[in-house]
Design a binder for these strands. Structure first.
Length: 413
RNA sequence: GUGAGUGUAGCUCAGUUGGUAGAGCACAGGAUUGUGGCUCCUGUGGCCGUGGGUUCGAGCCCCAUCACUCACCCCA
C-alpha cells in the first residue's frame, strides 16, 4: 500500500466543513479590518528564507525541505509565509502604489520535524502582514484583529500573551545581563540550556525543565532593559489594547523563534492542544523588508496554525439542503433522472439514489442526510405526482409535479 | 536528532502463567410488506506490522526492523 508522506495528512470530506468554516470566518474578519488576500507560490529560492528568518534559527538550520531543481537552483518548500509575502510586495512594488499594505494569506507550509499532536510536516497557516506603519497603535490593532478571529471562531479559553523584545539598540544589554545571571546559576541548568545560554539565552527563560524553572527565578526581565523608545512603544501598545477592550496577559518570558522579530511579540495559547499549545503568534519585524532588499519599511504580523485552531472547534457536519430521489421500478428511473435535472436547474440540490433495489435506495436516503426524499413510482407517474417524504418525521404525501417547487421551497431553503 | 508507548477483521478494541483466533460496530443476505434509522436470524471477512530467535508448541517471551502515537527539541 502506498501511504501518504509522514506528517502530511489528507483532509477528508467529513472534515472539510470545519476547514471551510475556519477559512471563511478568518476572511470575514480580515475584510472587516480592510485586509486583502494574496497567494504566493509554495516554492521559493532557498536564500529568501535563510536571509529572512535568520541563518541559525532551527527552522533554517534543519527543518527546511530544500532541493536542487533541474536548472541547478536551490529551492525550498516554504516553511512560513512572511518571507514570501515580503518578497512579493517588494517584487511588485506594491508599497510604491500604496505605502500601507494590509495583507493576509492562507495556505500550506512545510517543515521537516518529528510529527506529534498539533505539529505536522505539512501544516496550514492563516497569515497576516501589515506593512508601512511603525506606530504602536498599528501593533495594537493587529493584535486585536488576531484576537477577534479567535472570538469569531467561538474559541474559549484562548489567552493573548504579550511582551516586548526590545530592539537592536537595547536587546544586547539585556542579553548580556541575562547571560551574566545564568552564568552564576549554571549548576541548575539542563544540558540544553547550558548550550542555549550562549546561542539564544532568551530561550532559557522558556525551558520547561523544573530545575531550570527554579534557576531562572529572579532572572532579569527585559522590561527593565528597554530603551526609552521601546518602553513607550510597548506602553502605547498595551494602552491601545485596553482602549479596544482586548484582554491580554503580560508575559515577560515570552520569546520568538525567528530572528526578525523586534519590540512587540505575542502568542495566543489554549488548553487542550497537548504540548503545542500556541494557536498563533507574531510580532513586529521592522528590519525585515530592508533585509530582503526592499526599502526600510516597518511591519507587524502574525500567523495562526490552522490544525491547532481546528482542534479547538467541535466537529461540524455539513448541513445538507436539497433532496434525494428514489425511483421505484425500472421504468421510472428515467423519469427520476429528468426530475432531478429540472430541480437542479432551479437551483435545488438534488441527488439521485444509486441504481439498486428500492430497499437499498431508501436506506441510502436515510443515510444521505437530506431533509426530504422524493419517491417516484408507477402510481405517481400515472397520476402526475411525486411522493414527498419528510425524512425526520417519516410522513409522506403526494404532491402534483407542478406544485413540487413550491412545496420544496419551504423545506429546502 | 533523543526518549516512551502502541501495531490482532474495513473501524474500535478483547485475548487468562506460552496450548487450535474473539466481541461490538460496519458490510452482505434473509425474517419483512411500495419505504431507511429499531428488532431477530445467517453469512463474508485476520500471514495477529515485517524478519529472525527461544520452545514440542509463540498473538503472548527475546532480538532486529518498519509504521503510527505522544513527549523532548522547535514552532503556528
Amino acid at each position: 500500500m502506498i501511504t501518504a508522506v509522514k506528517g502530511m495528512n489528507d483532509i477528508l470530506p467529513g472534515e472539510i466543513a470545519k476547514w471551510r468554516f475556519v477559512e471563511e470566518t478568518a476572511r470575514k474578519v480580515f475584510s472587516l479590518y480592510g485586509f486583502s488576500e494574496l497567494r504566493t507560490p509554495v516554492v521559493e529560492k532557498t536564500e529568501l528564507f535563510s536571509r529572512g528568518m535568520g541563518q541559525d534559527t532551527d527552522v533554517v538550520e534543519k527543518q527546511m525541505y530544500t532541493f536542487t531543481d533541474k536548472g541547478d537552483s536551490s529551492l525550498t518548500l516554504r516553511p512560513e509565509a512572511t518571507a514570501s509575502v515580503m518578497r512579493a510586495v517588494i517584487e511588485h512594488g506594491l508599497l510604491g502604489q500604496e505605502p500601507v499594505q494590509k495583507l493576509f494569506t492562507i495556505g500550506p507550509m512545510f517543515r521537516y520535524e518529528r510529527p506529534q499532536k498539533g505539529r505536522y510536516r505539512q501544516f496550514h497557516q492563516i497569515n497576516c502582514e501589515r506593512l508601512g506603519e511603525a506606530g504602536p497603535l498599528s501593533d495594537a490593532e493587529t493584535l486585536a484583529l488576531a484576537y477577534e478571529i479567535a472570538v469569531a471562531l467561538g474559541l474559549s479559553g484562548v489567552v493573548l500573551e504579550v511582551n516586548s523584545l526590545g530592539c537592536p539598540a537595547c536587546r544586547p544589554a539585556f542579553k548580556k545581563a541575562l547571560q551574566d545571571f545564568l552564568e552564576a546559576k549554571k549548576e541548575g541548568l539542563c544540558p540544553d540550556c547550558l548550550r542555549r545560554m550562549y546561542t539564544n539565552p532568551l530561550r532559557v527563560l522558556d525551558c520547561k525543565v523544573e530545575t531550570c524553572k527554579t534557576a531562572v527565578e529572579g532572572a532579569p526581565e527585559n522590561s527593565g532593559y528597554l530603551c526609552d523608545e521601546c518602553r513607550t512603544h510597548y506602553d502605547t501598545v498595551l494602552a491601545g489594547l485596553d482602549a479596544l477592550y482586548i484582554p491580554y496577559e503580560k508575559n515577560p518570558r515570552l520569546v520568538r523563534g525567528l530572528d526578525y522579530y523586534i519590540r512587540t511579540a505575542f502568542e495566543m495559547t489554549a488548553k487542550g492542544l497537548g504540548s503545542q499549545n500556541a494557536v498563533g503568534g507574531g510580532g513586529r519585524y521592522d528590519g525585515l523588508v530592508a533585509a530582503l532588499g526592499g526599502n526600510d519599511v516597518p511591519g507587524v504580523g502574525f500567523a495562526f496554525g490552522m490544525e491547532r485552531l481546528l482542534m479547538l472547534i467541535p466537529d461540524m457536519a455539513e448541513e445538507k439542503k436539497g433532496c434525494f430521489i428514489a425511483a421505484l421500478g425500472e421504468n421510472t428511473k428515467k423519469e427520476a433522472l429528468k426530475l432531478a435535472a429540472q430541480l437542479r436547474r432551479k437551483g435545488i440540490r438534488t441527488e439521485l439514489a444509486p441504481e439498486k433495489s428500492f430497499k437499498v435506495q431508501m436506506k441510502q436516503a436515510g443515510k444521505s442526510g437530506y431533509p426530504v426524499c422524493l419517491i417516484i413510482g408507477d402510481d405517481e407517474m400515472a397520476a402526475g405526482t411525486v411522493a414527498v417524504k419528510d425524512m425526520k418525521t417519516g410522513v409522506q404525501d403526494q404532491v402534483k409535479q407542478e406544485d413540487l417547487l413550491k412545496r420544496l421551497a419551504d423545506i429546502v431553503r
